[in-house]
Computed example of a mutant assay.
Amino acid sequence: MDNTENRTMRIERTFNAPIELVWTVWTEPDHIKNWWGPTGFTNTIKTMDVKEGGEWLFTMHGPDGTDYANRSVYKEIIPHKKIVFEHFNPHFITTVLFEADGDKTHIKWSVMFDSSEIMKAIIKAHNAAEGLTQNCEKLEKYLSTKISLS
Rank of each mutant, 00 (worst) to 15 (best):
R10D: 06
G54S: 11
A100Q: 05
D114C: 05
T66I: 06
T39M: 03
I123H: 03
L132I: 14
T94K: 01
E130P: 03
D2H: 06
A128N: 03
F85G: 01
K138I: 10
Y74T: 07
R71A: 04
I32L: 08
K124Y: 11
H31G: 08
M1N: 12
L97C: 09
G54I: 05
H80P: 04
E117Y: 08
G65H: 11
K81N: 13
E52S: 13
P38G: 07
L57I: 09
H87C: 08
T47M: 14
T27D: 01
G40R: 03
T59N: 11
I11S: 06
E76D: 08
K75Y: 03
G62W: 07
G54W: 01
F15M: 10
M119W: 03
F15V: 15
T4A: 12
D49W: 11
K120D: 14
G37W: 00
L57W: 05
N3L: 11
L149W: 07
P63Q: 08
H91M: 02
L57E: 12
E12N: 12
H31V: 07
K124H: 12
E55H: 13
K104N: 13
K124C: 04
Y74V: 08
E86F: 04
P38H: 04
K75N: 07
D101P: 01
E28G: 06
M112Q: 15
P63K: 09
G131F: 02
G40K: 06
G131E: 02
F85P: 00
F113S: 02
E76H: 09
V50N: 09
E5A: 15
T145E: 13
L139P: 11
M60Y: 03
V25S: 04
N89R: 07
C136N: 15
H61Q: 10
